[in-house]
């Protein structure tokens, strides 16, 4: 697999990476630290995908206000991902529906996919990292 890729892409191996967000944005530091991982990956010219499922869909909900919580609101950073050429964002439809959310509630452009298609997509990745 590696050799074939090197032939296809000059300048190094390009793998399909997926970063999977499954946790709510605040309360634990997972969401923020996944985001830091995603941002660093942009420097490596890889084929980066970011997925949001389970409570992870709350990470990209519009209108986050963390003032009373005393946490940094890092949600604007998701909007900056485009500037790093990270544009393949996927959200699981069932996770949205289970939480009474729809695509209109989200602060970035995403592709909404079914749970089955999300699983298929994960299967196509070379590297999946999650938290």
């Amino acid at each position: 697999m590696g050799d074939k890729m090197e032939e296809e892409y000059e300048g190094g191996v390009v793998k399909k990476f997926m970063f999977v967000n499954r946790k709510a944005p605040y309360g634990t530091v997972y969401a923020l630290e996944v985001l830091e991982m995603v941002l660093i990956s942009a420097a490596f010219d890889q084929d980066v995908h970011v997925a949001f499922l389970d409570d992870g869909v709350y990470q990209i909900k519009k209108g986050q206000d963390t003032k009373d919580l005393g946490h940094k609101n890092f949600s604007p950073t998701y909007r900056a991902l485009e500037g790093y050429d990270i544009e393949k964002l996927f959200v699981e439809r069932e996770s949205l529906e289970e939480r009474g959310l729809s695509e209109a509630d989200l602060l970035v452009d995403v592709e909404v996919v079914s749970r089955a298609d999300m699983a298929k997509l994960m299967g196509e990745m070379d590297v999946v990292m999650t938290a």
């Binding site: 191996v13 990476f17 830091e36 991982m37 660093i40 590297v127 990292m129 938290a131």
Partner: peptide
């Protein structure tokens, strides 16, 4: 070291295995 070392491991390794929830 930095997070770049993690991404590099993902690129260099044949399989990347995550341990956590």
């Amino acid at each position: 070291s930095g997070l770049g070392q993690l991404i590099e491991a993902g690129i260099q390794a044949d399989r990347m295995v995550t341990f956590g929830d």
